[in-house]
Design a protein around this nucleic acid. Sequence first.
DNA 1: AATGAATGAGTGTTCATTCAT
DNA 2: TATGAATGAACACTCATTCAT
Lengths: 207, 207, 207, 207
Amino acid sequence: MQPKSGSGELTFTEVGRRRQIVAAAIETIAEVGYTGASFAQIAKRAGLSSPGLISYHFADKDELIGQVVAEIYGTGGAQIRLRSDQASSSTDAVLSFVAGSIAFYDSHRAHMRALIQILNGHPQARERWVDQANSAELDGIEQVLAQGQRDGEFRGDLVPRVAAVVIRDLLSGALQRLLTTPGLDVAAYTGELVTFCRRAISGSADA
Amino acid sequence: MQPKSGSGELTFTEVGRRRQIVAAAIETIAEVGYTGASFAQIAKRAGLSSPGLISYHFADKDELIGQVVAEIYGTGGAQIRLRSDQASSSTDAVLSFVAGSIAFYDSHRAHMRALIQILNGHPQARERWVDQANSAELDGIEQVLAQGQRDGEFRGDLVPRVAAVVIRDLLSGALQRLLTTPGLDVAAYTGELVTFCRRAISGSADA
Amino acid sequence: MQPKSGSGELTFTEVGRRRQIVAAAIETIAEVGYTGASFAQIAKRAGLSSPGLISYHFADKDELIGQVVAEIYGTGGAQIRLRSDQASSSTDAVLSFVAGSIAFYDSHRAHMRALIQILNGHPQARERWVDQANSAELDGIEQVLAQGQRDGEFRGDLVPRVAAVVIRDLLSGALQRLLTTPGLDVAAYTGELVTFCRRAISGSADA
Amino acid sequence: MQPKSGSGELTFTEVGRRRQIVAAAIETIAEVGYTGASFAQIAKRAGLSSPGLISYHFADKDELIGQVVAEIYGTGGAQIRLRSDQASSSTDAVLSFVAGSIAFYDSHRAHMRALIQILNGHPQARERWVDQANSAELDGIEQVLAQGQRDGEFRGDLVPRVAAVVIRDLLSGALQRLLTTPGLDVAAYTGELVTFCRRAISGSADA
DNA sequence: AATGAATGAGTGTTCATTCAT
DNA sequence: TATGAATGAACACTCATTCAT
C-alpha cells in the first residue's frame, strides 16, 4: 500500500527515504542518463535493497522524476533568482544574473546534467515540470530589461521579451558547453558572455 | 536475408519501403520521442504488418536512425547553408543565415523535433552523425565573421569563435522555442533575433 | 507450389538446383555449425537469390538436412566400405577398414565436419538418418571379426560385437581428434591406431 | 535488480529457485537438445510463470548453462575420479575407472545427455567449462598407465598417452551407445569393455 | 523456375510494478 | 516499513516459411 495515499501526511522516516531516493536518482541520471536510470540502477547506487522500495515510496516513475526536477529547481531557484532590488542598476542585475547562473551550473554539474538528461529523455518533462518555471524566469528577466529600458540604461529599440529569450538561450548554450567541454576556462567564458550581453543590451556602443 | 547486403543496389520497391519506414520513423520520433519510438510503434504508424519488417529492411536500429538523420540533414543542408559568396556583405550573409535557419525550422517542425529527440535519446548520435556537420557549420560562421571583421564591417573587439558559438546557441534556442511555444509569431521573432544579431556584431551602434 | 509434390519426377534443372543447395548447405554447416546455418546463410554462400528458393526446392529444413546427410553418407559409403572379399585375410580387412576410414575423414574434412555438426545440432538426426547406416556398418565389422575368429585369426575370447563397437568408437574419437587438432600427424596417428587394433584382436600377443 | 550482484550471498529461496531452474534446464536440454532449450521451454518445465524469471535469477543464458555444467560435473566428479591410491594395482585402477564411469553414465542418463547436448550446441562450452577437467582426467589416466608400465604391469611398447586417449574414446563411445541403444545390457557391455581394455594394456596375452 | 518482399512466431533480456511476508 | 521474489509486457532482432509476380 502506498504510504502517501489518502491524507497528505508523510512520516519522518518517509520524508527521509524519499529524499534519499531522489538524491540517488539525481546522481544516477547524471551518470547514466535518463534512459539508463532504471529503478534497479537507482536502487543499486542508493544502497537500497530493491527497486520495489522506490515503487513503494513513489506512485510511479513520473512522480519520482517530478520530485527530482522539483529538487533541482528548488536548489537553484533560491540562489540564482534575479534580484533587481539588490542590484545597483538594471544592467548590474542582468549581468550578475548571467554570471550567477553560470556559476551555479559550474557548482552543480551533477544536478544540471541530470536535469538535461530528464529534459532529453522524458517525453513530457518540459510541459509537465519546467515550462512554467522557465517562463516565470523569462518574465522576470523581461521585467528587469523593461525597467532598465524605461530608466534609459538600455537601448531604446531593444525588445525586452526578445532580449530575455536571447539571454536564456545563451545560458542554455553555456550550460551545454560547460558540461561537454572538458578543460573549459569557466571564468574566461563567463567574462566573454557577460561582455557580449552588456554590449547587446546597453544604450551606448562602448558600454 | 537482408536485401541490402553485398552489392549496394536497391530494388525499386526496396527504396520505396525504406523511404516509407524512414518517414514513419521521423513522424514517430517527433511524436513520442526517441525512447518511445520502438520498432512496434514505427511499424504501426507506417501501416506495416510487423516490426520484423523494419529489421528486414534495415540491418539494425542504428542503421535506421542513421538514415533518418541523413534524411533530415539532406533536406535542410541545401537550404540553410551559409552562402557568403551570394551575399552582398558579411553582415548580410550572417543575418540571412540566421533568418533562413529559423525559416527552415519553421517549415520542417516534425523533422527538427525528431532530430532533437534523436540527439537527446541516442547515446552516440552526436559523435556518429552530427558533430562533424555541426563543427563545419560553426567553422563557416566563424570564417564569415572573421572576414567581415577584416573588412571593417564588424566591431574590432569581436571574437569570431565566441560570436559564432553565440549565434548557434541562439538558433538552438530559437528552435527550442519554436517547437514549444504554441502561438509564437515566427516572423516577428525572426525579425527581432536578426536585429539583435546585427547589433551584437556590427561595428557601429546604429547598425 | 513445391515441385516435388505429387509425382516423384524431378526435372533436370530441379535436380541440379537441389545438388547445388545441398553442396552449399554442407559447406555452410561445416563453417558455421548447424545452428548458424540458417537458410539465409546457406543462400548467401550458394549465391542464391533468396532463402525462399531453398524452401521452394525442399519441403522444409529437415528434408534439406536429410539430403545433406544422405549425400555425405553416399560419398563415403562407396569408398570406405569394408571389403572382406578383396582382403587377403580378416585381419587385413579390419585394419585396412580402420586406415581407410581415417584416410577418408582426412580427405573429406568439410563433409565430416558438417555431419558432426548436424549430429550435434539436430535433435533427431541420429535416429532419423544415421542410426540405421551405423548399425549396418557395425554389423559388417562384426561379421568380419566373427569370420576371422572362426578362421583362428583372432583371439578366441574376443566378443565380435564388442570389438566391433570398440573399433567404431576409436574411429569416432579419431575423427574428433582429426578435426580439432591443428597440426596432427595423421600418418603416425593412423599407424598407432592400427597397431592398437591389431594387438587388441589378434590371437597372439606379439601380433 | 539481479539478486546475486554485489555480495556473493544468496538467499535460501534464491538458492532453491536456482537449483530448481538448473534441474529444469538439465531435464529440458536432455529432452529437446541445447538448441531447443529456450528459456520459454525451461520455464514451462520448471513450472515458472515466465521466462523472465530465469533472467531474474541468472545474469544471462551462459551463467545458467555454466551452472548446469558445474552441477553435472559436481555430481559425477566425486564418484568417477580415478583413484590409483585406493586400487590394489594400476590395472585395477584403470579398469575400475572404466567400469565406474560407465556405471555413472548409466545412473545419470539425463545429466549426461544434457552435457553432451551442451557440448554439441554451445559454441564455447568446451573451452569454457570442460576442456580443463577433461585434460586433467586424461593426464590422470596417462600417469597411471605410465606407472603401471614402469611396474611391469603393462606391455612395454604401450604408449601411455595414446592408450589414455583410446580409453577416453571408448568411454565416450560407450556413453553414446548407452544413450542411444534402447535395450542395451549394460552389465555385459561393461564387462566386455573392461576385458577388452585389460587385454589391450596388459603385459601378457592371457591377462 | 525463380525472385524478393513479407509474415509472424520465436529468441534472450530488461523493465516498472506488485505483493506476500 | 521494508524486503526480495515474482510478473508480464515490452524490447530489438532472427528465423523458416509463404506468396504474388
